[in-house]
Amino acid sequence: MTDWLFLTEVFLAGLGSGALYAVTGVAFVLIYKATRVVNLAIGEILMLGGYAFFGAAAGWHLPAWVALPVAILAGALVGAVVERGLIRPMLGESPISVFMVTIGLGSILAGFVQIVWGADPLRLPEFLPSAPIFIGEAYVAPKVAYGFLAAMVVVTAFVLGLRFSRGGVALKATAADQAAAYSVGIDVPRVFSLSWIVACGVAAGAGVLVGAIGGISPTMGVFGLSVLVVVIVGGLDSMAGALVGGLFIGVVEAFAGTFLGGEYRFLVTFSILILILMVRPYGLFGTHEIERL
């Protein structure tokens, strides 16, 4: 007999963590669209958000509703500094060099939190309502449910915002053709900065949610690896792809973790990644660029 209730619960849990992949994925895509940078440090920036929240809430004893913006601002600040200090000097370098700069950045951030907060895993102060939540009969851990809601709100805001705001138009133009965007009067450097600031802020916010559910530790950056799978599956330059890919990978991981065991999670997601690279290298929704001689 299949236990439908159990399956539903696993599925919902998967959607919950998938939503967090999706927001982080959206942040990743935002940076990629605007600056063509594959930011491998996104996991570490997310981690930094979790720690910043911890520092504000547990260290300075600020209430959660203050600590959350503090974390987001910390992420945004890092984004601004990184864009100015590390990414802009690399303008015009090969994408691979820039990619490796972000690897170095991730390493720096991981070392930094370890020096400030130590190597041991920490728990974030509780700040989400803990009353159990049922969807139909299926139980959903309250943190997961709130995390899902928050993530979906952010993703929706993003997709709508980009479609209808002036910033969205500027982003789209920059993504399509930087030189052309420049020539029609779009402030391309500002698009660069803003995309890093917003994306890193969002990733830091996601870090608070991730930390609230699973705690924080200096190895939390591996979350970035799953996000990498998500955006490859969805297509590096597609917000919708990040959303679909995020939920998909979340659910797959939940089922793999439940039925095969935790150590199979990575195996399954990365096998999917390899499969996608073989059959649809530009992801489900990504654009394929034609090369010219």
């Binding site: 060099s97 690897i103 170095g104 390493s107 720096i108 070392g111 370890q114």
Partner: peptide, 21 residues
């Protein structure tokens, strides 16, 4: 030692890529 090493590795990557590619 361990975290400082991590930071130094990262900083060397970034520093060389930017200043002495």
């Amino acid at each position: 030692l361990a975290p400082v090493r991590t930071i130094v590795f990262g900083a060397l990557i970034v520093g060389f890529l930017i200043f002495e590619p």
